[in-house]
Amino acid sequence: MPPLPVSQIPLNWYLILSATLFLIGVAGFIYRRNIITIFMCIELMLNAVNLSFVALSYQWKQVDGHIFSFFVMVVAAAEAAVGLAIILTVFKNRQTLEVDEISSLRN
């Protein structure tokens, strides 16, 4: 079996990409006003986590990080199931998905 090609891209680049994706997710979470978009930003953050786990796992020549990223995917899927169900009930009761209009709980 021929040896696997070694990646020429240094680890730092993966980590910078992952940090950038994560920051885009955080910024979107803070600035976007539509619930579905906010939820997509959370998924983006989780995918940045996955990227960082896989890159670091490759660097350490281990599978632990790969395993963690599988569990993160499972959690993201479960979160999507629960989250979309909650979003649906909100929409059914209010006919809106703008967070600023969902504010009956105030001081």
């Binding site: 953050m45 989780l46 940045a48 986590v49 960082s52 660097q59 350490w60 990080g65 963690f68 979160e79």
Partner: peptide, 16 residues
């Protein structure tokens, strides 16, 4: 879930 993602990102750095 936002805070869980923050935590998961921190965990990935600890692993690194």
């Amino acid at each position: 879930s936002f805070s869980s993602s923050l935590l998961a990102y921190g965990f990935s750095l600890l692993y690194g």
